[in-house]
Design a protein around this nucleic acid. Structure first.
Lengths: 230, 230
DNA sequence: TACGGGCTGTGGTCAGACCACACAAGCTAT
DNA sequence: ATAGCTTGTGTGGTCTGACCACAGCCCGTA
């Protein structure tokens, strides 16, 4: 086992044993190095990995917010991994869009009508009705709306994946939007569809909501000129 | 931006510009440090992150296999991230099983009958008929069969996720198997179901294959005593 | 009481050293 | 001439020890 991996191995043990949990502070790097019998450089490499995986957050200074703290942020790992793998052309945008569609229809079908995420989703829709800062602001709230919807299904993993997928294709979406002939008409349609989706979920008609989501997403891509970029 | 991040930023640029691609060798750490104007320690931290994300593989020595090489292995990031987030109780096994079911039924419905992955899947089924090394060997091939099936859908992302999800719940599955009253009867049923799934896919009856997959997975968990552990 | 500055511990970064490894080239003994 | 060993070279892996910036805490002072 490589030296820096003793850090994640140790952390996994501590978590499993219940001695550490989300919110706990890790010992200082120097302490940890001595305790694990490795150098501080190796501790740091291990910590960087944990940070990249969204398991930990490092902060300088002193006080309660400082030091290395255990977080639970799986989307961080997905975010950067997706970015780089898309850049290396190992992942195609088509796959990501496809996966997003898959996750999102499932989430719509399984969303719990009573989830507080739905209230956040509703507020986002209100903001989108009022907002006049152009497509950029609209799309940002649009993305958050879809993520909120995914979280309403109560599956942390699906929620995290959705968030990262949205992020990784955000540039792509922005470019697609630029091709739209009439933003005004499109945004009005999108808002109408959002309301319909949210209503279906709130009424517990999951399957119907899933169909609406599918039409909503596919319609957007169709209107803006289909996956012509790899 | 933190110093070690200049490495991933640089790599992303190089990839986007087409100057590097999967299979390329990165410059040596010392060279990179000088070229990027940072210390070797920082280069190493950056490389560790890339390695953890499955973008890169580091190997000592000299020759074609040595040095830091760009790979495309998104599942590596998911693997470790899932392990740790499950350990931190931020992800529940229930969510993972649920997500696996979701991805797998989709893959079965979208698998291309002509995919070479299916030939691998068929070979695995033959091995499972012959193998007599108990549940462990069987389950391992079982897992590979399901991953092969997922890959047949031609979506790299879904394939990678499936692989990682299987891995992260492998321990769990092993424990469930131990509870089964009669392994012989169960394995026979599982093999029969696998054949039926593969046949359905090969015949292009995707929707039917998806139903079979769903019954197959849910049946297994039901028989072995349902998600009683968080 | 209010304020200001130093103290302390945190992560962030760096430089330089040595090690194990694996291949390649060259040397040596057959 | 060839088989086998030796040495050279470049790679990542690890360690040490140093210095920096930062943020909160504590104590002395006005």
């Amino acid at each position: 086992m490589r030296t820096h991996q003793v850090v994640s191995a140790w952390l996994e043990q501590e978590l499993a044993a219940g001695r550490l949990h989300i919110g706990s502070r890790l010992p200082g790097e120097r302490t940890m190095a001595e305790r694990l019998g490795i150098s501080r450089a190796s501790v740091r490499e291990g910590t960087r990995v944990l940070e990249a995986l969204g398991v930990v957050r490092a902060g300088v200074g002193s006080g309660p917010q400082a030091g290395t703290v255990i977080t639970g942020n799986p989307s961080l790992a997905l975010d950067s991994a997706l970015r780089l793998h898309v850049a290396s052309a190992h992942l195609r945008v088509k796959d990501i869009v496809e996966t997003r569609l898959l996750l999102e229809t499932w989430a719509a079908a399984h969303a719990s009508p009573g989830s507080p995420s739905l209230e956040r989703a509703a507020r986002l829709l209100d903001e989108m009705d009022r907002c006049d800062d152009g497509p950029a602001g609209f799309l940002q709230r649009d993305a958050l709306f879809h993520v909120a919807l995914a979280e309403a299904a109560g599956n942390v993993l699906v929620g995290a994946m959705m968030g990262s997928l949205r992020g990784s294709i955000e540039d792509y979406t922005q470019r697609l939007t630029a091709r739209l002939p009439e933003w005004g008409a499109t945004s009005q349609r999108l808002r109408r569809e959002h309301r319909a989706i949210l209503d279906a979920v709130l009424e517990g008609r999951g399957e119907h909501a899933a169909e609406l989501v599918q039409d909503h997403i596919e319609g957007f891509y169709r209107e803006s000129g289909i996956h012509s970029e790899g």
